[in-house]
């Protein structure tokens, strides 16, 4: 099963150690065949709203910095527990903050 893990922005400023730890973590998950895709998100972004026939595009940013999604990882694991475990290791590396994790259905 696949899970999309989204990291909220904010938290501690990344230092060299964090970059190194993250790189090692990403490499390990790739080697284990678990990490399918990952990336960081531009906090600006834009928003599309549809009301009736009308579609509006609004440029961001929209929320408190700490509420915006800063990055994502798409992982393929056997169980919810494995997803939690990987999430836990990720949070240990990045420190205080919040992740949202959803199971992905499809394609």
């Amino acid at each position: 099963m696949r899970y999309l893990m989204m990291q909220k922005a904010g938290g501690a400023e990344p230092d060299a150690q964090l970059y190194a730890d993250m790189a090692a973590f990403v490499e390990e998950l790739t080697a284990a065949g678990v990490l399918l895709a990952t990336g960081g998100l531009d906090p600006a972004g834009f928003k599309m709203t549809s009301v009736g026939d009308e579609i509006t595009v609004t440029d961001g940013p929209f929320t408190e910095a700490k509420e915006a999604i800063g990055g994502f990882a798409l992982i393929e694991v056997r169980s919810r527990e494995e997803a939690i475990e990987l999430g836990r290791r990720f949070r240990k590396i990045v420190g205080d903050g919040e992740s949202l994790i959803h199971q992905v259905y499809g394609p």
């Binding site: 790739t30 080697a31 284990a32 065949g33 678990v34 393929e76 056997r78």
Partner: peptide, 17 residues
């Protein structure tokens, strides 16, 4: 079907090794 996933993981591991 989970076996397919296991095989994929093994294969991906092997590709790195």
């Amino acid at each position: 079907a989970d076996l397919c996933l296991e095989a994929l993981r093994l294969g991906r591991m092997l590709a790195v090794l």
